[in-house]
Amino acid sequence: MLRSPAKLLQLFVTLVTCAFLFVPTLQSVLAGVTANYFRGLSSGLTLKWITEVWELYADSIFLSVWLALACLAVTLVIGVPAAYGLARNPGRVSRILEEFISLPLAIPGLALALALLQLYGSFKGFRASPAFILTGHVLYTLPFMVRSVLSVLMAMDLKTLEEGAATLGAGPVRRFIDIVVPNAMPGILAGALTVVTLSIGEFNLTWMLHTPLTKTLPVGLADSYASMRLEIASAYTLVFFLMIVPLLMAMQWASARASAKASKAAQ
């Protein structure tokens, strides 16, 4: 199997690329659990730095989790009905609205943050509260929720399904709860995981919007890189990894499931 030189070359390139990506990661992870990075692994392995990160940045971690969940709640409440409205009324107005919702994706996070600061910066209570960052996160993640739900809804004959439910005595609210939401679930799930992952990892916007009291996980990461010793920064990266990788994997799984469902419904 590995006899031909072309195959060998392929294997070599693959391994080098993997090494290029994995070695720094591995090194960073190791740095986070090494007693003294400059003396190397001979100084011994320790969980001291991770404990220290926890002591220093637990608030940031909790804030990030809280923000991600709040962001999820808001995008669910706004995004699912919005996607439903767009799916039920296809047309030029809907297309324009959809583009409009997606606009924050095209605008750099910094510009979006600046706009928010200019507009709401003078509302002191709001400016200083985590709700200010939440606003930014919602703006940034909403299009992902809307598009994810919309693509699943568009793949099925929603109008006829609803008509079917209506002839059986279901009013508009019941139809939404019994028919629309369950059938949109794969899209909602994929959208939800995307929103949570993006919110936890969001840096651009958050860095502009945060105050010393509203520091999130990635902002704390930048802070630790700038002002802490390398071992703590590396341990922080490790913590961040442990939080984000399972989310990313779940996201992959959910969106694969959503697109499988959509293509099945389209048959």
Partner: peptide, 20 residues
């Protein structure tokens, strides 16, 4: 009366069965 209050039974061309 709106459709949900008319107590009609309807069979659609595409059946419109609820996949969930």
């Amino acid at each position: 009366l709106p459709v949900e209050k008319r107590k009609v039974g309807m069979v659609f061309q595409s059946y419109a069965l609820f996949p969930n």
